[in-house]
Design a protein around this nucleic acid. Sequence first.
DNA 1: CGAAGGCTTGATAGACCTCAAACACAGTGG
DNA 2: CCACTGTGTTTGAGGTCTATCAAGCCTTCG
Lengths: 243, 243
Amino acid sequence: MNFAMHKQANPLLWKLDSIAVLSDEEKQALLDLPLTVKVFEADSDIVRDGDRPTECCLVLSGFVCRYKILPEGKRQIMGFYIPGDIPDLQSLHLNVMDHSISALVTSSIALIPHESLRHLLERHPGLAAALWRDTLIDAAMFREWMIGMGRRSAYQRIAHLLCELQVRLKAVGLAVRNGYDLPVTQNELGDALGLSTVHVNRVLQDLRSEGLIVLHGGTLHIPDLEELQAAGDFDPSYLHLKR
Amino acid sequence: MNFAMHKQANPLLWKLDSIAVLSDEEKQALLDLPLTVKVFEADSDIVRDGDRPTECCLVLSGFVCRYKILPEGKRQIMGFYIPGDIPDLQSLHLNVMDHSISALVTSSIALIPHESLRHLLERHPGLAAALWRDTLIDAAMFREWMIGMGRRSAYQRIAHLLCELQVRLKAVGLAVRNGYDLPVTQNELGDALGLSTVHVNRVLQDLRSEGLIVLHGGTLHIPDLEELQAAGDFDPSYLHLKR
DNA sequence: CGAAGGCTTGATAGACCTCAAACACAGTGG
DNA sequence: CCACTGTGTTTGAGGTCTATCAAGCCTTCG
């Protein structure tokens, strides 16, 4: 069995392979998971604040975000999720959702019953460790975003986010070295970074005029990745990738 | 064996009991963990950014924080930890620390070898689930802090933090209904909330003058908890306590 | 009693927000 | 084929929250 060829078909395999060492047996077990694929339109919720999910959602294609709406109507986006990610893996151990997960563009999502996952993890402690690790890396990303919103300028924050997505997309084969598709509006960027749309727009123009990014029509080109990383004070070690 | 009386001696038992259901056997196994107790002075690091820990630290008494220093010298505090917490539990699955953990006041810390923990978790899947859940709740707190720094005013943020500590301290028996010891300087509060010391001071005065808090000498009194929660837009559900 | 750390206050500045409107572009329908 | 609509982007002007700088004050402790 050639697992390399399955990476395309099953992005979860690709993703976990980028953060943990898996045996062939474990990889096979992952491939054997029963998946129900469902397509979500742009701006539709996959899981809602207050829900008690009985399955986890694995992103197969598209772009997904984790967010919460505050009483005053403001929205905070707490993370972007890409193919291979299981944004609500936590629902395995936290019964009630304390936020929502939504598709930003049309996305195909595989639903995996909790039952199947629990069964899998019982039999394969290595996979249990890998998924626990995955949730810990998620937490590390939250921390890094916290640092950004607490102590970095808007300019740095945006540069940092663009770098994070570069690295993560590349780890699952969805980015080339110098760019990727970014199907996110400036409004959504603002909600993710704690900024107003207007300010995001102005800072993006700064980044453009400095030649750090070329961004239009949802396509991002990064002429010099290291320069952008420096501008965003970005160090990928918090993503805990294997190499 | 009366486990209730052990809660005092072993705050971990108390803490886990507040977030998960444990059998007597599991409780006993927790009590059997080999602990090496060590006292850390105020402002001394327990684990450092870049370390590769071989043990986890359990807070027995005192007050601890998770933080990171940025290149420009700024500090972001990403969480406060109290007796019963294991702030670096993640080191079980993430080899390299991407931040530091430090005592804010003299604190006694129990060091638990990874080996012992792994052994424990293999034998007691229920405890493994409880500790995984604990790291997920940690992540939920990060998310809530993110929301604060992204979308809440300084006034709300401070009120929110004071409420969070109230609930968490109460869950391990360290707070009465209307207050607790808060051994944190205004400078540290600022670093935790992404604010300057000066501004923290002014907002605290606002909170005081509105009668929402009485704070001096490291002791916080909350005349009306519900009012403070309303001021901080605080809803404890993200802490995922049992009841 | 002096030193040190933390708290408080005042004045000034800047980053970012809000409001408001114009512009660009893709999709829709007649 | 061209108005029409909607969403996203861009620009301008004014305002505010919060940072920074600088100093004085208070308490604790050796």
